[in-house]
């Protein structure tokens, strides 16, 4: 073992019997939370699918106006961030605190890159008059009113996903701040793992969003 490694473990809270029980409870709780998140997004996916069934033409027209390449790049960015997050988890298990911190910061940077690209995409949408809900701005697809349904759904899905990612980046930075203390891994190693689940899940949602909005409708 490397000299850089610090002890790793879980400080058992009073009402748990042992560290295993506590870790299991924490991971279990996070999975349940993720199930609720999945159903949260499923409502939005359902809208996208129903709109596609009702108005296939309108949906294609919208998909051709979405910024396909930004969407694809963003998917790749999130896949990279998943890798760095997995690496952070593995390093936390080994007790390699510095490497773990570096990976966490890399993950946060990739998340921020995603958000920046997303912001640029929104700006392009605005410039290209893809914002039907701004009354003061003419809408480029105004000929087919049903196109608005998918555009609106697109903004809500990506907005909600962006919100989740923003939360993820903030929590990750907070966690990194706490984890800079050498004693962190001795007491709270499982927090990195539990947070990692959340991060991968945001990635998973985007992996579904990309085909549902950008790809399948083209």
């Amino acid at each position: 073992m490397s000299g850089a490694a610090v002890p790793v473990g879980i400080e058992v809270a009073e009402h748990f019997q042992d560290a295993n029980q506590q870790r299991h409870a924490a991971v279990f709780g996070m999975w349940l939370w993720l199930a609720t998140e999945l159903l949260l997004f499923s409502g939005l996916f359902l809208v996208a699918i129903v709109v596609r069934v009702m108005y296939p033409d309108a949906v294609t027209a919208v998909a051709l106006h979405l910024k396909f390449w930004i969407g694809a790049t963003n998917t790749a960015v999130l896949i990279c961030s998943s890798l760095t997050m997995s690496a952070a988890i593995e390093l936390s298990r080994l007790g390699w605190r510095r490497g773990m911190l570096a990976c966490m910061l890399a993950t946060a940077s990739l998340g921020t890159l995603f958000l920046a690209l997303k912001g640029y995409e929104y700006w392009r949408d605005y410039v290209e008059h893809m914002t039907p809900f701004f009354g003061f701005r003419p809408y480029v697809l105004s000929g087919d009113r049903a196109t608005q349904l998918l555009v609106d759904d697109y903004f809500i899905i990506t907005g909600l996903h962006g919100l989740h990612l923003t939360t993820g980046v903030s929590v990750l930075l907070g966690l990194a701040w706490i984890a800079r203390r050498p004693s962190f891994l001795r007491h709270h190693q499982h927090r990195v793992e539990v947070f990692g689940l959340y991060w991968h899940f945001i990635d998973l949602i985007w992996i579904s969003v990309f085909p549902i909005l950008y790809l399948l409708n083209r």
Binding site: W31, L34, A35, L38, L39, S42, G43, F45, L46, I49
Partner: peptide
């Protein structure tokens, strides 16, 4: 099981 349950419920809804 619970990871699967979330997706199963999604299938019900859809």
């Amino acid at each position: 099981l619970f990871a699967g349950v979330g997706f199963y419920w999604l299938v019900i809804l859809f």
